[in-house]
Computed example of a mutant assay.
Amino acid sequence: MTSEPIYHRYVALGDSFTEGVGDPDSRRPNGLRGWADRVAEVLATKSDDFGYANLAVRGRLLKPVIAEQLEPALKLQPDLITIYAGGNDIMRPKVDLDHLVELYDAAIGRLSVTGARVVMFTGFDLGFAPVFGKLRGRVAIYNELVREVAETHGATIVDYWRFREYRDDRYWDVDRLHMGTAGHQKMAIHVLDTLGISHDIKPPRLRAMSAQTKKERRDADLAWAKGYAVPWVQRRIQGTSSGDTVKPKRPELAPI
């Protein structure tokens, strides 16, 4: 029987996906929990000297993720690293995916040579989404390039693209851009299962679905556009980010 791996120093890098946006918890740094915290909680039960750092900051493009988080992560000498970056780049009007993933490849190379297990993610399949579905092809190309990077450096892939349950609105926050609590809980399960780590996290209990009339759906879409889509576009135009004043919620390795 093969024993499951044990990790002692886990460092999470990335943007809002990894920071935990959409999964509020006032007791935690930045007021967020998220899938990475949930993974760390399980890993902590396997090791007496476990430490966890989360350097992710919402709104970060791939280049700032690398520039701001790579060196601090390396200094912490992790034996497990998770990183997701590029999602915010993909949503910009223009993006050079080949150049983007060249930067990603170099960063993953530096992380992998440390001997740490490196975990990467594909992007989510937006094909079902009314507004963001037009980006589906762009995400698919990005994913193929990411898979090549992972194969080159021996990194592990958590294949978000194939998680069809996320086509259910109940896995998402009200902003429709970030996973909600149920989405983060389910992602923690996917990550732990991919790592081969036993756990007792249960699938989320989803609220009952309520039928909507066409008018109710249209009104909800208009409210979403006014409350979330328009401000997001305005930030892009102004060159600002939701994370401009945000600091990493766990900059140093510490128990959880």
Rank of each mutant, 00 (worst) to 15 (best):
R236D: 15
R205G: 09
Y52L: 09
R9E: 06
K75F: 06
A36L: 03
Y84T: 15
E165V: 13
P93W: 11
P24W: 06
L80Y: 03
S3L: 13
V119Q: 04
V113Q: 11
R110H: 11
T82C: 01
V65R: 09
Y7E: 04
L97M: 08
L74V: 10
A129K: 11
K186E: 12
L222D: 10
T156K: 02
A229R: 11
G196D: 04
R58E: 08
A225M: 14
P29F: 15
P203N: 13
M91H: 11
Y84K: 14
T213Y: 05
Q185E: 15
D159R: 04
D219R: 14
D200F: 05
L253H: 13
H178W: 08
K226M: 13
R110Y: 05
K186C: 05
K214F: 14
T156F: 01
A188K: 12
A36R: 09
A140M: 00
V233C: 11
D219M: 13
R9G: 01
A188Q: 12
D219E: 14
G31A: 06
G22Y: 05
R235V: 10
V246D: 09
I90R: 08
M1E: 09
M179R: 13
I157T: 01
R92T: 07
G243S: 07
L80M: 02
Q77A: 12
K94Y: 07
T82K: 04
H178T: 05
R60T: 04
V118C: 00
P5L: 01
K214E: 14
V42I: 12
Y142W: 15
W35G: 00
D96M: 07
A223C: 07
F163S: 01
I90N: 12
G14M: 09
T45W: 00
R218S: 15
I189Y: 09
Q69S: 04
L55G: 05
K202V: 14
H190S: 10
R60A: 07
V95F: 02
N88S: 01
T194M: 08
D200N: 11
M120Q: 10
D125G: 03
T45E: 03
Y142E: 10
T245E: 15
L80I: 05
G239N: 06
V21P: 00
L145Y: 04
G123E: 06
T152K: 13
